[in-house]
Write a protein that binds this DNA or RNA. Sequence first.
DNA 1: AACGTTTTCGAAAACGATGTCGAAATATAA
DNA 2: TTATATTTCGACATCGTTTTCGAAAACGTT
Lengths: 357, 357
Amino acid sequence: MITPSAEVSGIPEQSPGSALSQSTTNRVTINDVAQAAGVSVSTVSKVVNARYGVAPSTMERVLQVIAELGYETSLVASSLRSSRTNIIGILVAEFEPFALELLNGISATLRGTQYDLMAYAGNLAPGGRAGWEHRSLSRLGGTLIDGAIIVTPTVEIPHSSVPVIAIDPHAGTSGPAAIDVDNFGGAKTATEHLISLGHRRIGHIKGRSDLKSAHLRESGYRQALQDAGISYDPQLVHDGDYQRDLAAIAATDLLTLPQPPTAIFAANDLSALSAIETAKSLGLNVPNDLSVIGFDDIPEAAQSKPTLSTVRQPMHEMGATAVTLLLSMLAGEEVTQPAQMPASLIPRESTATAPQP
Amino acid sequence: MITPSAEVSGIPEQSPGSALSQSTTNRVTINDVAQAAGVSVSTVSKVVNARYGVAPSTMERVLQVIAELGYETSLVASSLRSSRTNIIGILVAEFEPFALELLNGISATLRGTQYDLMAYAGNLAPGGRAGWEHRSLSRLGGTLIDGAIIVTPTVEIPHSSVPVIAIDPHAGTSGPAAIDVDNFGGAKTATEHLISLGHRRIGHIKGRSDLKSAHLRESGYRQALQDAGISYDPQLVHDGDYQRDLAAIAATDLLTLPQPPTAIFAANDLSALSAIETAKSLGLNVPNDLSVIGFDDIPEAAQSKPTLSTVRQPMHEMGATAVTLLLSMLAGEEVTQPAQMPASLIPRESTATAPQP
DNA sequence: AACGTTTTCGAAAACGATGTCGAAATATAA
DNA sequence: TTATATTTCGACATCGTTTTCGAAAACGTT
């Protein structure tokens, strides 16, 4: 904080100014530009904002002065006046690989627009429990950001003074301003892939039962079976809770059945990788004895041995879509329906044709 | 950069009549609080900012009104007045795994301070070439952020109106406001690890010769050899340029020598992984026939077969240190010397005792 | 009761930009 | 030339907050 001591309003001390004003603040304001160009501040503002009503000649002169002085408009001041900050916030629980692609998608889409990106990581707080979105939003909304994108909210999206888009691959599209992936379709595709390879006994390791995504993925699995005329066998469906260790138990149960499945569709990649480990430890060869397919396409999926066939969530595109939706909301348009992104099959080494008995 | 007309035309003309003024009207300002509490705005401001000179009784009353009305101070307005935004910016070339830990470290350290984090991805721009830091900084500095952290700058850090810290694992500490990892020490440690396992013929795959880190890592390698009384053999050092394919060539050259090395220290993990592949294709067993150690500890290092021994760059801590340094700069302190973070040995499966001839 | 001292409080001036509205300058029409 | 339409431009109020500085009030001391 600098206090210009002998600075009276009206006449700026310019003669000793060079040294003094440099040390106090070397910031070039719209006033400096106006003075240097011999016009009023309003004219400079009009030039900067390309408003109508400035003669070409003066515009050129002002632009020249701006370039000379290296003037940059103060985002803070203009925000205060126009009550728009041109910043959109992204609230993410944690900077994790999952959020990474999202950030890139958002960032890329935002480029070229007037908006900047502000990123928050929520749940790293000491008392980081659910509901951090609410606190952040109320603090930021209406004062620092024009809109927000929340990733995998832990709570119901709070009422906010700014438009909010939720990217939630798990809870399902709960409102119009939400984006998720086609869990049902993706699961169906994964299962169909196994069926097309000749598998008939296909197990399923379920996800967390409190998340909608788990139910949708199971439904997709069952739909694919039904479409192929394969009867549903409850014995082949076990709970994995999206977790590594529980999935291992589920896989063990499945593979030690009197008549074990020849393929497993796991509700997420973590479970799938765990299932592969389990199969190996049981002396089974993946994919020759057992095919395994997952869901998510986490980075490890491409690194494992064998590499994991899976269904990809298009995070980059989801980020881009979120921005697009948010921008149209900011433009005053009504967003009437949620966006659902397609999940695409990524066949890798962990799935192969069914073993011939 | 002054907003050109083309960009402005993309902005939806929000007529100041309806939606905008609605969102502004229901905002609770300091004035509303003052009026409701029966005090002046200055008093409210003092209460909010915990300034001295307000009676406990009035303070309590004001606080109560603030709670009732749900008043939140406008960050924009206070920034304008106090010329501080309480936002620090991080400029990163791209949201990549490398930057992820950094972000978490920064975010965690920032929590509990008055500052918020604003993240920028630079080189995703269409014309995204070197120098994006300069453009971003001049636009943000002094108006939107109080300070900045730049990750792996591609150019000399531009003169800026705000404090800047550079995190640069490659260029070395070029100025006082820079953070890097101890490349020399890390390389020395890696090499010493190989020596302690009994290796005497140790090869080195060098990094990009235009980066200081490559030279430092080679120096560390040579120092460790010298300390152990092992004479330096130029035949055992080949260029890998930090790249996968070039490292493969280097590895082939090394392993087809009449008297091949029993261990290789690669200047980065990418090269190390490539060397392992090469060794495998030559029929060598890692680590029984050949030990390989890398540098960086990229995520793949823990996933490969065998898992890669390496030297870890403490990204999380580097982020935390960057914040600490930046905060002290913002507090007006002089940062006199760069910070160098220790690199730690992560022994995994790719290194073992030297084969007995 | 009169005086000095310390607290407590409020009026008002910034911070830098935007947008309105009327005045001045210029072009067009009569 | 005069009257009118059209540009072009600048004075000024405003956005919500911080901060200074002097006035008023409260307190303590003779």
